[in-house]
Amino acid sequence: MSINRRQFLRRAGMVTALGIGSSFVITGFRKKDAAASGYTKAAKDMPAKRWAMVVDMSKFKSEADMEKVIEACHKLHNVPKFPNTKDEIKWIWKDDYHHTFAGGHNEYLDEHVMHSPFMVTCNHCENPPCVRACPTEATFQRPDGIVAMDFHRCIGCRFCMAACPFGARSFNFKDPRPFIEEVSTEYPTRTPGVVEKCNFCYERLADGLMPACVEKSNGGLIFGDLDDPNSEVRKIVSTKLTIRRKPELGTQPSVYYLVGGGEHA
């Protein structure tokens, strides 16, 4: 044999590459499976251009009213309760005025106002930095404005958590299942190692239902299509004074906080 080792390796490599390459070609030419079928939206599906929420804290009379809302969401979506805040997962929660609208500290603000509670959740921004950051499009923006998560695709890099300026995202540091008190069959649980957050209940919108939190809020959370001039959210946002969290960052949050509350359209 007059070939040296280098030539031998080179030829072996070429044969391997040829084999792998041709197997790709063969599978490429194979007929695609043919299920003459299609997909459509559910009949009850509620269409919208931009889902948005108005939070009217004047309608929440007590702690219990807020807990009811949080409970409804977290129970429905199988959000676990971890004893350790380090692993905490939350989709909707409450925080005080001072921290929710961080940045504009006013030292003369009345203690009562400063510590008055606000409901906080994912803002479903129009320009979501989390979607921009995601390297796999596991988090993406739907045509109706909802910033959704595809738990199947998330690799758990947590770039979205660094990108979100609102602290809306949680990561499954541990297996959530042992920490779910009451399991809901309406929504799957999550696998460890993926990021999750509020999804504006898109699974309920597809069934023609309002988000779970809105349903339990006694009118404190108003939900609708901001693009529809006749929707309640649009009427409130266009005629009343509302504020949003960190508007200066240009993400255009879709959660508005009604100042003063009271009667609205």
């Binding site: 299920a35 079928s37 997909y39 459509t40 939206k41 959704a148």
Partner: peptide, 29 residues
């Protein structure tokens, strides 16, 4: 016959359509 051969592909399609495209109804052949 179709399901035996293609159920995994169909499930993948379902997942993509329902989760990513909001198409929650499947129209079969």
């Amino acid at each position: 016959e179709f399901m035996r051969a293609n159920h995994m592909k169909l499930l993948n399609q379902w997942r993509e359509e329902a989760v990513r495209n909001g198409q929650t109804v499947y129209i079969n052949s």
